[in-house]
Simulated assay, not measured.
Amino acid sequence: MVDILLSALVSSMVGNLNTSALQELGIALGLRDELDNLESTLSTIQAVLQDAEEKQWKSKPISNWLRNLKEGAYDADDVLDEFVTEALIQEAEKEKGLKSQTGIHFYGEI
């Protein structure tokens, strides 16, 4: 049977959408509406998953559906993680650029 952690994975994805770096990158790229829509969709999916996870023990079709959905959710989570990582890299580069412009250096920095 599919483990009950699928809705937790979706919850983690919603959390990733709310990181400040991703929000800033989304605004900079004009993706704010798309990120809001994705968050809304994921919240709806999470509610359906919680219901399906309770019913999977009584229904083989639901169990199979959850197994397939889980594979897709992991793929989507990987893509979102890459997007968040890129947002953090851009945020760090922006901060580094601001420090070099102002001449501010911290201990251990060159």
Score class of each variant (00 low, 15 high):
Thr19Arg: 06
Thr19Pro: 03
Ala21Leu: 03
Leu22Val: 07
Leu22Met: 10
Leu25Asp: 02
Gly26Val: 01
Ala28Gln: 09
Ala28Thr: 08
Ala28Met: 04
Leu29Asn: 14
Leu29Gln: 14
Gly30Val: 09
Gly30Asn: 10
Leu31Ile: 10
Arg32Glu: 15
Asp33Met: 12
Leu35Gln: 12
Asn37Ala: 13
Leu38Gln: 14
Leu38Pro: 06
Glu39Asp: 12
Glu39Ile: 02
Thr41Ser: 08
Leu42Ser: 03
Thr44Phe: 03
Ala47Gly: 09
Ala47Tyr: 03
Val48Met: 11
Val48Phe: 09
Val48Asp: 13
Leu49Glu: 07
Glu53Phe: 02
Glu54Thr: 12
Glu54Val: 12
Lys55Thr: 04
Lys60Val: 15
Lys60Cys: 13
Pro61Lys: 07
Ser63Gly: 12
Asn64Pro: 04
Trp65His: 01
Leu66Ser: 07
Leu66Glu: 00
Arg67Pro: 02
Asn68Glu: 13
Lys70Gly: 02
Gly72Asn: 10
Gly72Ala: 07
Ala73Gln: 06
Tyr74Phe: 09
Tyr74Leu: 11
Tyr74Asn: 13
Ala76Tyr: 01
Ala76Gly: 08
Asp77Met: 01
Asp77Trp: 01
Asp78Lys: 11
Leu80Gln: 04
Asp81His: 07
Asp81Lys: 12
Val84Lys: 09
Val84Leu: 06
Val84Ile: 12
Thr85Ile: 08
Ala87Lys: 01
Ile89Leu: 06
Ile89Thr: 11
Gln90Arg: 13
Ala92Asp: 12
Ala92Pro: 03
Glu93Arg: 15
Gly97Asp: 04
Gly97Trp: 01
Gly97Ala: 04
Leu98Gln: 07
Gly103Tyr: 00
Ile104Phe: 01
Ile104Asn: 05
Phe106Asn: 04
Phe106Gln: 02
Tyr107Asp: 06
Tyr107His: 06
